[in-house]
Computed example of a mutant assay.
Amino acid sequence: MGIGRARALRARIAARRAVMVVLVTAVVATTGGCAAPSVDSGAGQASEQAPTTSTAPMVPTSEPSGADDLARFDGVNRGVIAADESPGGFAFVDALAEAGFDRASIEVTADTTTLGERADSIQFAVRVDDRCLIGQYGEGSDGYRSMEAGVLGTGGCLVGAAVASGG
C-alpha cells in the first residue's frame, strides 16, 4: 500500500472515529433520560430539552441557560474558525474561556492522532449546569457541527480521552 493510500485510509478511520464519538455521546445522552441532542449544521438550529433530575453541582455562567448558551457557544466557535481555518483545539478552549465559559468545564480532544498525524477533526465541549455544549470541527466532520446533550455518567461531556484544558 502506498504512502498516499495509507494516509487516506488513516484519515477515513479518524473521521469515522470522530463521528462515532459524537454519535455515542448522543446515544448515551438520549438513553440516559437526559436532554435530546440538537444538531447545528450551520443552516439552522433545533433544540428540545427534556427535564432532568441531576444532582450534579451547578457551574455558574454569565448568560441565561438554554438556547442562549448554545447560541453563544456557536458564535464563539464560528469566530475562531473565521480567524483561522485550521485552528487547534486550544484556540477553541481559549476563546470559550475568554467568552466567559468556565475553563475547568471545557474538554477538548487531541490535535493529533496516535500515529502523530494531524487529526482531521477535533471535538470540544463545555459543561454548563447539567448540560453539555459539544462542538466538532475539521475536514472529517464536513465543517463545524454542534449539539447540546446531557452530562455523561462519568460527569464529563466527551467520550474517551480528552487533553487537559488548563483549568
Rank of each mutant, 00 (worst) to 15 (best):
103 R>H: 08
103 R>F: 03
104 A>F: 04
105 S>W: 04
105 S>M: 11
106 I>M: 07
107 E>H: 04
107 E>D: 11
108 V>H: 01
110 A>L: 13
110 A>P: 06
110 A>C: 11
111 D>E: 11
111 D>V: 00
112 T>E: 08
112 T>F: 06
112 T>P: 00
113 T>V: 06
113 T>W: 09
113 T>Y: 09
114 T>H: 14
114 T>C: 10
115 L>M: 12
115 L>K: 14
115 L>T: 14
117 E>D: 15
117 E>Y: 14
117 E>I: 03
117 E>R: 15
118 R>N: 07
118 R>F: 06
120 D>K: 12
120 D>F: 05
121 S>R: 05
121 S>N: 07
122 I>N: 01
122 I>H: 00
122 I>R: 01
123 Q>A: 11
123 Q>Y: 02
123 Q>P: 00
123 Q>N: 10
123 Q>D: 07
124 F>Y: 09
124 F>W: 07
124 F>S: 03
125 A>R: 07
126 V>Q: 01
126 V>Y: 00
126 V>R: 00
127 R>V: 03
127 R>W: 05
128 V>Q: 04
128 V>P: 00
129 D>C: 11
129 D>Y: 09
130 D>M: 12
130 D>L: 13
131 R>L: 12
131 R>T: 09
132 C>N: 12
132 C>M: 13
133 L>W: 10
133 L>M: 13
133 L>G: 08
133 L>F: 11
134 I>S: 01
134 I>E: 02
134 I>A: 02
135 G>R: 10
135 G>K: 10
135 G>I: 02
135 G>L: 10
135 G>W: 05
136 Q>F: 06
136 Q>P: 03
137 Y>W: 11
137 Y>K: 04
137 Y>T: 10
139 E>A: 15
140 G>V: 01
140 G>N: 05
140 G>K: 02
141 S>C: 09
141 S>K: 12
142 D>T: 08
143 G>L: 15
145 R>L: 12
146 S>Q: 13
146 S>K: 10
147 M>E: 06
147 M>C: 08
147 M>R: 06
149 A>I: 01
149 A>V: 05
149 A>L: 06
150 G>K: 06
150 G>T: 09
151 V>R: 04
152 L>A: 08
152 L>S: 08
152 L>E: 07
152 L>N: 07
153 G>P: 08
153 G>T: 05
154 T>K: 10
154 T>Q: 12
155 G>H: 14
155 G>W: 13
155 G>P: 05
157 C>Y: 02
157 C>S: 05
157 C>G: 03
157 C>N: 04
158 L>M: 06
158 L>R: 02
158 L>D: 00
158 L>F: 02
158 L>S: 00
158 L>W: 01
160 G>S: 06
161 A>I: 11
162 A>E: 11
162 A>M: 08
162 A>H: 08
162 A>F: 03
162 A>P: 03
163 V>H: 00
163 V>K: 00
163 V>P: 00
163 V>D: 05
163 V>I: 15
164 A>V: 15
164 A>N: 14
164 A>W: 15
